[in-house]
Design a protein around this nucleic acid. Structure first.
Lengths: 252, 252
DNA sequence: CGAAGGCTTGATAGACCTCAAACACAGTGG
DNA sequence: CCACTGTGTTTGAGGTCTATCAAGCCTTCG
């Protein structure tokens, strides 16, 4: 059943996400909240869309934790990004007919599906919103690039620290992180698939981060003991997330 | 001095590039050729734009060979993509104020600079072209993702093979590759910066690819001896380049 | 012809992987 | 209530890929 986004409790998170990267007028917000969406629930460890699919709707994460990944012929997996509430990970399906990767869940996830025609109409009637979504997809590209730098040139230790910093900033932007940590429902194996490391090595790196007094990760909860230290270890510079200046001012 | 793009000999390559990823109407082509551009020449090994810049124009490569890269505090470099004639590598500057990476040349490069206002006007008057450029930036994202998979989960040997395959397809799409090779004006050190490998290791991998009878790379010219073998070694699947179906039909 | 940059080779070292097994813990069923 | 199971975590040992260091070689070019 299709209902306007405003009827979903989590619509707040969607607005927060967009406001973290751009200024929204009252009318912009209205238009977004009026979007007709189809809410679906995906269980943990299932695929939302798959490599080779040609979706006719875009999905917006309302609640849960998801990733984009590819599988190699030999069974290896590379996770290319994490998507949290407020994100629209397959906006690309609007302009790229066949998907070249999978979107999967880690936990039970609520998703708002928006049929392509509604989005196309929105972009036609609100060119400024089209620009904002374009901007969002460019920011996603910037995040890919930052990950590439990590995979190519940083140590496992640095990559891990960097990932934890990125998620802290992004989750906090939508109100889903505490000042010093957040829920991270990933196994060490899954973290390895994101960082290009083996499970064993992820485990050893986490111990090292712990013994350096930077973090504790246990039972799906990340506790950041030393934010400045973690940022330093990661050489983390949040420019690449391209937050809106107003958003940054508010956070500070 | 600002002149319409049509006055540049290389305007053909720009149209070829766009037609490789989308259908252009006669009017679309006109509008693009009418774009006022400012041609600039960059010597080899110079930066076109830099990390931290806030450009007021986008650049379109007319001739030459360039890359996007980041530098790490310790001096390490990661190249995140190569840009060839027809590409518009900093379209993102339209929507992301401050650049988070550098664009640099390898050889003397001719670039058409397009002031932002002209592009904004173009997109307003030709929404279909806006969609095509949006599509192009999404394809760039898809290329980033494919590189991430390589950096995270493929061996140096496979990554090298994959890079050579990608460039063959992209250069061929704009008429700059032969059936069995192309000019590749990169040092082994620069290739290493793209693949996340040391110069020494790049050298050894190239020898291996040669002794496997797949390629010869010498004096800036790549000769592909066994295309199927190279594709196989790379597990290369061109879906991620999202070429237009018409373009693929023509190539076949 | 000398200098500079890139290529090649050898030797050594380190980051990270694979394999294998033990451990911890939550959920299940008798 | 307690084995039993399954999944995830942890530890150890050995091996591989790739980095680093250092030197020699080759080509280009002023």
């Amino acid at each position: 059943m299709i209902l306007p986004l405003r009827q979903q409790a989590e619509h707040v998170v969607v607005l927060r996400k967009l406001e973290s990267i751009a200024d929204l007028t009252q009318e912009d917000k209205q238009a977004i909240l009026d979007l007709p969406v189809n809410v679906r629930i995906f269980e943990a460890d299932t695929d939302i869309v798959r490599d080779g699919d040609s979706p006719t709707e875009c999905c917006m994460i309302l609640e849960g934790f998801t990733c984009r990944y590819k599988l190699l012929p030999d069974g290896k997996r590379q996770i290319m990004g994490f998507y949290i509430p407020g994100d629209i990970p397959d906006l690309q399906s609007l302009f790229l007919r066949t998907l070249d990767n999978n979107l999967g869940t880690f936990v039970r996830t609520r998703v708002a599906m928006i049929p392509h025609p509604f989005l196309r109409n929105l972009f036609r009637s609100h060119p400024r919103l089209a620009e904002i979504f374009w901007r969002d997809s460019l920011i996603e590209g910037a995040i890919f690039r930052e990950w590439m730098v990590g995979l190519g040139r940083r140590s496992g230790y640095q990559r891990m620290a960097h990932l934890l910093c990125e998620l802290q900033m992004r989750l906090r932007a939508v109100g889903l992180a505490e000042k010093n940590g957040y829920d991270l429902p990933l196994t060490q194996n899954e973290i390895g698939d994101a960082l290009g490391l083996s499970t064993v090595h992820v485990n050893r790196i986490l111990q090292e981060l712990r013994s350096d007094g930077l973090i504790v990760l246990r039972g799906g909860a990340l506790n950041i003991l030393d934010w400045e230290g973690l940022k330093g270890a990661a050489e983390f510079d949040l420019t690449y997330l391209h937050f809106d200046s107003d958003h940054l001012a508010k956070q500070a």
